[in-house]
Each structure stands twice: as C-alpha cells, then as structure tokens.
C-alpha cells in the first residue's frame, strides 16, 4: 500500500536516511499500521469541525517586554561546531 518510492519521498521530507532494505521494511510496517488507521476513513465526519485544541482559550498574548536571554557562551555551549561565534553547518549543495 505504501510503496518504496513513497517511503523514499517521505523519508526525504523528514530528513531521515534509511538504508534501502530499511525503506522496504518501513513501507511494510507503515502499511500495516495504516490498515488499522483506515477505520477513520470510513467515518462520516461531514460537517464536524476539526479539533486542534481541547481547551477553549483565545488571545493568549505576551506584553512586548524584554526578558533576559542567554549569554552567548550558554547559547553556544551545546553545539558541536562553533565557528565565528555562530553555529557551523556544512555546505548546502
């Protein structure tokens, strides 16, 4: 039901490298789970609004007042590659 190319596409969207044999197993597992999930596709939900929040809150806003942040040392302390006081990443091509 979920073929290898869909698995490959989704894995790329999610930035997950799967070995080719893992992709196949993943496809089978996802298909198995989706079989169970498909019960909701038979439900009549016409006219039923979606629920994003179970609590009826609105307009939770913060005053535009500065709060103390992190020192640069703390901001960078957990990064593996610190370059020029910033976070280093490899080239993007």
């Amino acid at each position: 039901m979920i073929d290898d190319s869909t698995v490959h596409h989704v894995a790329r969207l999610a930035r997950l490298r799967l070995a080719p044999d893992e992709e196949h197993v993943m496809g089978e597992e996802l298909s198995g789970i989706l079989e169970h999930i498909d019960v909701i596709r038979g439900m009549d939900v016409e006219g039923v609004p979606p629920t994003t929040h179970v609590i009826a809150l609105e307009n939770v806003l913060r005053p535009d007042e500065p709060r103390p942040g992190l020192s640069r040392d703390d901001a960078l302390r957990e990064a593996r590659h610190v370059v020029d006081d910033g976070f280093g990443v490899p080239r993007m091509d």
Binding site: A75, H81, D84, G86, F87, G88, V89, P90, R91, M92
Partner: peptide, 18 residues
C-alpha cells in the same frame, strides 16, 4: 546565515546567527 566563503572550520560551510 553567513556563508563561510570557502573557509572551512570544522565541518562548517555556513555559520548561523540567531
């Protein structure tokens, strides 16, 4: 995002300033 301009320090090709 600042491109490190060919200079490679560690694995860096770019540097992020948040």
């Amino acid at each position: 995002l600042t491109h490190a301009g060919g200079r490679r320090v560690g694995a860096a090709g770019s540097v992020v300033d948040f």
